[in-house]
Amino acid sequence: MPDLNQLMALPGALASFEFTDKGELIKSNFTEGGGLDETALDLLSHVCVANTAIATMQARGWENMTGNKGFYPVEGFSMIGLDWTTVTHGQFGVVMENDKADIEAAYSALA
């Protein structure tokens, strides 16, 4: 299980968070003055759960239709914003600054 403090050690990490399977925020860490708070992370968790559900539907449909396996089950969803990138996997996520973000390292840390 990922450790929220260790996730904060990822390059450019602004926040790390854990959420329920419905997207409700359970625990979070965030840097002071980083512009994030628990309300924003709770909403973000809901967004990530919603998109993972949609991506799971797409992966299932795509595999059935094309016969190409390797997309399902979805192991992570990321959103890339203007300045921040969010990476989630399962019930954990991390927000990083774009110019420092290492998305592969984030997926490894979350796995």
Partner: peptide
């Protein structure tokens, strides 16, 4: 978008 995909799949 989602109903288009549902129809497609």
């Amino acid at each position: 978008g989602n109903t288009d995909q549902l129809s497609m799949f």
